[in-house]
Structures are given as C-alpha cells and as structure tokens.
Nucleic acid binder design. Sequence first.
DNA 1: TTGTACGCGTTATCAC
DNA 2: GTGATAACGCGTACAA
Lengths: 349, 349
Amino acid sequence: MPTIKDVAHHCGVSIATVSAVINDADWVPHSTRARVMEAIRALNYRPNRLAQSLKTRRSFTVGVIVSDITNPFYTDIVRSLSHELRKHERSLVLCDSNHSFQIGEENYRMLLEKQVDAVVLIGDCVRKEDVEEFVTENPQMPVVAIERDYGIEGITKLLVDSEQGAFDATMHLIEQGFTRIGMISGPLTGPGSRSYGRLNQYRGFRRALQVGGVEFDSRFVVDGDFRFSGGQTAMRRLLKFADPPEAVFAANDLMALGAMEVARSAGLRIPNDLAIIGYDDIPIAAHTSPPLTTMAIPKTEIGNAAAHELLRHLESERPVGPVRRIFAARLIVRESAIFRLQERLERAS
Amino acid sequence: MPTIKDVAHHCGVSIATVSAVINDADWVPHSTRARVMEAIRALNYRPNRLAQSLKTRRSFTVGVIVSDITNPFYTDIVRSLSHELRKHERSLVLCDSNHSFQIGEENYRMLLEKQVDAVVLIGDCVRKEDVEEFVTENPQMPVVAIERDYGIEGITKLLVDSEQGAFDATMHLIEQGFTRIGMISGPLTGPGSRSYGRLNQYRGFRRALQVGGVEFDSRFVVDGDFRFSGGQTAMRRLLKFADPPEAVFAANDLMALGAMEVARSAGLRIPNDLAIIGYDDIPIAAHTSPPLTTMAIPKTEIGNAAAHELLRHLESERPVGPVRRIFAARLIVRESAIFRLQERLERAS
DNA sequence: TTGTACGCGTTATCAC
DNA sequence: GTGATAACGCGTACAA
C-alpha cells in the first residue's frame, strides 16, 4: 500500500504539498497539483482514513446499535440512515444487541473505543443507566435514540406517537359506522411492551371511543403478544362472546393477520361480518385477502431524520442542542375495515 | 479522553508498562499490574483502537456490502455474521449498495481506505470487473462472496444450490403422488434473475420430472417476478387451461402466496384441489392457511460460515486458500402440498 | 523489570 | 508557493 510519502517522493514534492492537494487547499498551483494527481493515479494511492482520523480526531463513522436487525422496521430505518450517511461521506458500523443489554453495553463501549463520531440507538438495546453513564462521560458526542425514550437529557429522541396512531385507527372504525369495537393489544409487561413503545396504544383506543361517542366494553380488550399466534388466540376469545365485536383494532399487523385467519376459519367474512384494522403496514398487508387496512410508520422518514440530526451536530462548528421529535403513523385504507352498508341493510331486513 | 500517557503518569510507570498490561504481556509483575489497572479504572481510560490499528496494521473491522439490507435473507445473514464477529472482537461496517453497482464500487473503495481486515459481498452488489480489480490490487485481503458466484479465483464463495432445492421441492410433489405439475419460475432476465442466483431452479424442476418419471408439459411453466402479484398473474394463466396442473412449485414463497390467493378465490381448496410448494420459508409461510410447504435456505449457517472463513484467514499466521461452499435448501413439510388420497378416491368415485 | 525513542500515515503550523 | 517538523495515541525494539 503506497503512502503519502511515496507519492511525495514519486513526484519530487513534500508530503505537505500532497496533503494539501488531497484536502484541496486553495493555494496549490495548478501545475504542481496536476503532477501530484498524476503520481496518485500512477501509484494508485489511497489515503489511509485511520491515520487521517487519528490526526483530525474525526472518524467519519457513526455507530449504530439495534436491538434486532431482523425487525423490518429497524431494517428500514438502518437502510435509510445508511444511505443518508453515505451521501455525506460517513460510514456506519452496525451492532445487533440481540435483545441483550449486556451485548448492547459492550457494543457501546466498543464504538467509543473506535472513536465513532456519533451513536444511534434503535429500539431497546442498552440499559438506561449505561446510556446515562456514557453520555455524561462523553457530553460532546451526539446520541440519537429511536423508538425508545430513555428520558435522558442531552440526547436526541425520535419517537412514534402510538397513542395518536391507535386513536386514528380506532377513529377510522368509528367513522365507518362501527359501534361494537374490540382491541387486540400488545403485551402488558415484558420486553415487547417497552421496546415497541406501544404502551400508549390502549390509551389512544380509549380516547377514540370517548371522542367518537362509542361505548367502551372492557370484555372486548384482549392482550396478545405481537405475534401471529397471539392474534389467533385473542380472536378466538373474542368470538366466544354471544355478542362479539363487529370491528377489531389489532396493535400490530401480525396479530391482525392471525385474527383474520381465525375469523375466516369461523366462517366470518371480512369486512362484511367482521372488520379488522392493523398497525405497522408490513409488506404482506397489501396482499392479504382482503388487503389489510392499517397504520403505516414513517420508517424512512425516521432514518432520514436520524441522519439529519446527526449531521447537524457533526457539520456545525459549535454543539447543537438535542431534539425530541414525534412522528405520526399514517392511515392506509385498504379493504379489511370497510363498512358495507348495503350488505348490512340486507342482513337487517 | 485520557490517553495511555495519562495512565502512565498517574501511577508513576512508563507507557510501555501500561501497554504491556493492556495487551497482557506475561512479564508484568502482579503488583505493578494491579497499580496500572487501578489507574485505568480511576481515569476511566479506554485504549484508542484507531491508534492501535494504525500501529498494528489491523483494524479488527470487517466490511460488508449488501445489495439490499431489507431483503430478509440478507438481513439474517448479516445478523449471524455480526454475532460471530462480535464473539471474536471484530466489528462490522455495513454498506447497502441499494442495487447500484456504482454505490457498491464506492463502498468497496471506502472500505479499503478505512483499512478493513476483510470484505464480505452479499448479493449482486459490485460489478465483477471491479471486484477483480480490487482483489488483484489487494491479494492479501480475504474476500467472501455470498449468493453470487463472481467466478473469480482467490475469493471465497458461499452459494445455495438452487438446482438441488428445486429438484427436492418438485420431487416432494412427485413422491406425494402428483402427476400434473406446474412451475411458477423467477424472471428469466433482469436483475432478479442473477441476484437471487436462481437460474438453476428450472433445471432442477426438469430433472426431478425426468427422474420421477413424470411427463413435462411446457404450458405449465409460467414465469413470475418473485413478487406476490407475479404469483397471482401466473396462477391465473395456469388456471385458464382446461386441464390445469394439480400441483405447482413456485420459485419463491411470495409468488406461492399469490398463487394460493388466486386459487382460493377461484374456489379451489388447498391442497385438496391444488397443491402448492414454495421456496424460501419466509416467516409468514408457517402461518398461512394452510401453512405453506416450502424450502428453507440455511441463512444462519451461511452467515456463520462467512464469519468462520474470514476468521480462519484473519487469525492464522499465513494466508489460507479460498473456499467454495455450496449449501443445500431444506424441505419444510407443512400442509399446502399434502396428497389427500381419501379425498381423491371419493372424488373419483 | 522499566523507561526511551522511534515509527505507523496523516494533518497543521510555521518558517523560508 | 513550498518544505520541514511537531503532533495524534499507541506498540515495541532496545537500552538501562
């Protein structure tokens, strides 16, 4: 591997001049500049970013810790983050904490040792106390937390308003004309309850019923586990009632799909006999039969925002204050929650 | 940030001693070692890996370029790769080339400049000529290519035998007793045809028919696009025949799901009226109704193997020869391709 | 057993 | 305009 020294020797200038050419300083004459460039091409010289970083104290690298990279939301966020960073000449070192706080803490420490310029935390990947400790030790390093509110001052937070999302979903059902509305919620305790940041979905559901003037029936709220099978189990419980709900809001699409499967197996048509609305807009949701009405999370926007916030810090001269941004889920109307008026009138008569 | 110098001053020894303690050399006396450790704790000293790397010429970092990180196969591979590397104190720089050869080439160059110890190429992310050039320029750097055979000497290849996978899938249908068998293939040209490395599926399908003594009907082979909608379109074409196939092998699960949807809408029961077998074993496949019989790709094994091969090079003294490993897809029997004998006898009578 | 001095590849300061 | 030269933080011969 040729070094800057080799280039300097090759074209008979000093390393300082070569360095100036590389970092295109304005004072280098065109003639010498051309000679240096020629030597660089001839030797196929590539600057050693490690040495650059050691000297400039900027690694042009961002560390990312994600609790589970196979979670499609996080994958999408990482992707858009990666693209934005690339546009600004930064690279990304990825750590998957695999839902282990210990691994997350090790990852964080490693990133600091590697002198990353910033850290992005996605999901519930590091213990709050550890983040606090790292942040107080490195107050100058930008930290962005996504989908988890550590409640720590001095770090940027990017969150999704799940209360509002659940409210909008439920409100959609009410506006369609449904009056007996159930909910398949997420787990009330355990890891999923926090990492998904969806504790507030139930609250949004309740608020929508209240605002929409629809009576709340506590029997119609069943808790699931965010998995397909959890949706199935929950739906079976719902269908046992003599007067089951006519519409159901599921806290995520996987459970909505499970619920749909059980409903159809029970001979119910969707949405004619039972309306279902999900949450997440996973890829398959557009292709189920009927296609699933659901709430989309602005994954790409979140990834872009993370990059944007980081770069604001990194590219500005003086430290920039942290930010707390709330993103809204967006209603995607498809066919699983349509109120079929004609159908209902016919049945009523 | 405290440096090794600060630690040395703090406990009144030389930096050489501190360095020896960090890299636990055997000659440091317990007493001084303890004093140094104490100072490290007190100052909260962390060695600067950048400086270490500059000196030792090993960055303990592996570069990964993936054509599309949101592709679940690649995500799983990246995940297992990342875990294995972490166990061996290596970190991972992730690049998503986003199906662009130009971005892939830029990524590769950047990784080299960052002095990564090795490169992993997943999918069709870098032009063959570029890989060749980089490899000849850096003959000592280990390169692992996954799911794409560049046909380049000197790099390790990890591939899935799609011919065998298609053969096994089709053979499963034949063994069940089906005789009129169709195939929904992948695209014959374009990016998908190469990045998925599935050109050979058709060949495996043909071979199975031959080996199994089942007549080949060219009308029953329709090409799709690896997407849900492509599966739907293909199935519609298949169902137009007066004597449609009684079993279908789809080149991926998404198309199998699309085909299933169309078949059911047409009033066909699965597998009673039409058997379907997929390829990939995507997560939802276990939860469709009926659950989809399919071929599973050993994603985790591939990721682990990539890490294993890299570490063989990285941790051995002298260069190790590259390897070419072929992985087999595994049949996952569920319910979408079961031959219901009794049902068929009843219908026949 | 411990300390000194140099080199890794680069940038930045300051003479010339 | 250009070229020495001192850092950057660390590892390591080699001297003490």
